[in-house]
Structures are given as structure tokens and as C-alpha cells.
Design a protein around this nucleic acid. Structure first.
Lengths: 219, 219
DNA sequence: TGACACATACCAACTGGTCGGTATTGTTTA
DNA sequence: TAAACAATACCGACCAGTTGGTATGTGTCA
């Protein structure tokens, strides 16, 4: 009754000092892989546990429900994407923001290779199934997509500021459009059993962005 | 052992003369609606039967399995799309193929309204879940998407012939790109719980197609 | 009369989730 | 410093309900 939230901060410290690759992390990792392969509903809790090498008891110790795991995994996916796409690649450190934007699109294009479950978007897959059945999952997927778009729109805004853009295009709107093309490309790749046509679509996107910035007459 | 495939042709004739709104049709209709709402795996056979107002016996009389229903429904979806998008609207009878193409995109844009389960693509939803689990379903969805792209590419090719296009863009490739943007827009709409951002993305697509044809210098 | 369209009853496997328990890892206190 | 305590991490048997699918009908109509 004296301090406001002592146990919460203690909890946070504890989690930070938890061994990596704990059951919790392994469950999230296994869930992401399995859901990307066969979807959320078709993936059973048992299956995730087996893939993670832990027991069902451990699962429900860490997550109140399968839904709660979905929410947590969406949060983890945001961090993974931030790392793999916005931090580790070399082109993120290019000086010109337009170069970074084109670098981004070409990087996403280069990812379209191999089996679909290796390059498709976990939250995009999950939200398709859960958008009406689970609002917590829908919201978590939305947050992940939004975080990506927000992050991407920074470079786009900087590119607009530096080079100008026509048609009154907004940075955030274009960021979401880039996301839409990628998500749609994933579906084509899944249907075709090959990422070839998906790549063509991203090439169209690349051309479009190039065209938008060529006529950089501001406003 | 004499004729090559007599029962198949008989089956086809019979099916054509079957009363509309038979149990089979009601099951397919119910399946499409329910799967668009909550996905294929999360939709149970019982649920489809209840929604269709028929019994489980009827279901397995008409379809060997849930998977077989998925395949049949994908085929039905192709016909529905052909009707609603390529036959009934007025703009499909415009003289200029480029007008038809723009009419098509604007029509798809106008469809992005109301709840997502009313405008999203059945086969796009289904293939996301089934592409690794059921190759018959994957192939059926692919066939539906391909039929759409083939059909759309006719107008695009005519527009290219008439107006020219830059960058060596192919009609079929552009048709698939249009599909990709739409499919991606559906995912954004599901995540956001609103089709607003999806519409913005289709507006980008509209602008892109316009730009492609503006600089119509052939090759 | 027999093929077809549908109905009813049923099943084994699997589903997400619970529960009582143990092992491990700090934290407090004598 | 070590024993006592407490909180967390994890285990695996178990449960009620649901799953896709089957077996066996019954009514109807060419």
C-alpha cells in the first residue's frame, strides 16, 4: 500500500535476466515457424509444444491460452522484423533516404526466395484467420504492421523532404502501400508454389516508387 | 471398358440439370461465407452444414471430404468473380480497353466497403492456410487466381496494343500485380478493422497504372 | 426396382485447457 | 553461512467437448 508498483518492476527485471532460449522463447519461435507453415487454427498447442521440445504444462505456465501465445508471438515478430530489416542490413546506413527506400524494396525482393514459409509475414498470415475471431490477436497484428509502416515512413518522409514527391503522396500511405504489395505477393507465391510472380509484383512496386520520385516537384 | 469416360459426361449433364439451390449449392455458398469470416481450418464441417441448413449426411454425400468441398468452392468462386466483376458491371462494355482497365480498378476500389468478409477474396484467404497442407486446394485456388489474371490481362493487352506502354511491361504480369495489391489491401483492411488504408493502396495502384500508360512510347 | 438425395446415429482421434505435483532458483533470516 | 522459505519453472496425466468421417438407414422419382 506504500509503493505504487514494486512487483511489476521486479517482474521486469526478472524477465530481463531470464536465460535466453527458455521454454517461453522456444514456444514463441516454434509457434511462428509452425503458423507460417500451416496457419494458426490448423496449428495445435500440442504441435507447438513438440516443436519447441517442451511440455504442455510449460505452455500453459507461460501463456494463459493459445490466443495469448498468438499475441505474444506477434510482439516478438515486430522485434524480429526490426532487427532483420531495419537494423542488420547494410543499406539502412546509406546517406540518402531515397537510396535507403529503394534498398529496402530491393531487399524485400531478394527475400522472395525458397519456400514460402521462410519469407512470408507471420502477422499477415495470422490476422487473416483471426481478424474476426480474436480481437486481441487482430490488434497485436495491427500493432506489428503499424510499427513496420511507421518505421518505413521515416525514410520515406526524409526522401520526400529531400527530393520532393508528386501527387500529394503521404509517407505513411506509401509505406502501407509497400506493405500491401508485399503481403499480396506472399499470397501469389503461396498459390503458385513459387515466388517468381511475387518478385515481378515487387518489381512493379519498385518502378512505381521510382516514378513517384522522378517527378519530384514538391506538392 | 468400351467408352472412355461415360459416367463423367453423364455426371456433368446431371449436374447442369440439378435444381439450383440444392444442398450442394447451399453448402458451397455457406462454406464461402464462413471461410471468408473465420478461415478454412477454423470452420468445421458441422458449422457449414448448419449454415447451409442441411445435415452432415448430405455434406458427405456431395463431397468426399472437407478438402473436396474446398476445391469445389474455389471453382465456384471463379464463376462468381467472373459474373460479378467481368460480366455484370457496366464499364466492362466500354469501347476503350484502357477505360475498362481503369474501370476495373475503380470498381475494385468501390468494393472496399463494409465488413472485410464481404469484400475479401475467398481463394486468397483459403490458399494462405492450405498451401502447404493440401495441394488440391492450393491448385484450385491457383486456378481461380490464374483465371482472374488471364481474364484481366486481355483488357490490359488490348490497352497496350492501342495505347502502348513503357518499360516492357507484360499484360499478364501487370494483371498479377493488380491482384497482389488487392490481396495485400485485404490483409491491411483485416488488420485495421477498416478498409480505409486498403482503399489508399488501391488508389496508389490506380495512379501507377495511369503513369504506365501515360508514357505510352511502346517498348 | 434401383439409383439418387438426403437423414440419423455413431465413432475414434484430437482439441484447448486443467490440475496436482515436483524441480529449481533466488531471498530472507538465524 | 546455511537453513528455511517463497516464488517461479516445468511436468504429464487427465478432462469434456469437438473434429472429420463412417455406417446404415429412409423416402422419392424415373
Amino acid at each position: 500500500m506504500v509503493t505504487s508498483r514494486p512487483d511489476q518492476s521486479r517482474l521486469k527485471k526478472r524477465r530481463a535476466t531470464l536465460p535466453r532460449n527458455s521454454a517461453r522463447d522456444k514456444l514463441i519461435e516454434a509457434a511462428i515457424a509452425t503458423v507460417r507453415y500451416k496457419g494458426f487454427s490448423a496449428t495445435s498447442v500440442d504441435e507447438i509444444c513438440i516443436a519447441a521440445g517442451v511440455t504442455k504444462g510449460a505452455f500453459f505456465h507461460h501463456f494463459a491460452s493459445k490466443e495469448a501465445l498468438g499475441v505474444a508471438a506477434a510482439g516478438a515478430w515486430t522485434d524480429i522484423a526490426e532487427q532483420r530489416i531495419f537494423t542488420l542490413p547494410d543499406w539502412v546506413r546509406l546517406a540518402d533516404p531515397l537510396d535507403r527506400l529503394i534498398g529496402h524494396i530491393e531487399f524485400r525482393l531478394s527475400m522472395l526466395d525458397g519456400p514460402a514459409e521462410d519469407f512470408t509475414c507471420f502477422v499477415g498470415t495470422m490476422v487473416q484467420e483471426a481478424y474476426n475471431s480474436s480481437d486481441p490477436i487482430r490488434a497485436a497484428c495491427d500493432a506489428s504492421i503499424t510499427a513496420y509502416a511507421d518505421r518505413l515512413s521515416k525514410d520515406i518522409q526524409a526522401a520526400i523532404d529531400q527530393h520532393g514527391i508528386g501527387f500529394g503522396v503521404s509517407a505513411l500511405g506509401l509505406a502501407y502501400h509497400i506493405q500491401a504489395v508485399l503481403q499480396g505477393a506472399f499470397i501469389l507465391a503461396k498459390a503458385k508454389g513459387s515466388p517468381e510472380i511475387a518478385r515481378e509484383s515487387v518489381a512493379h512496386l519498385n518502378r512505381y516508387v521510382g516514378m513517384l520520385f522522378e517527378r519530384g516537384d514538391s506538392t
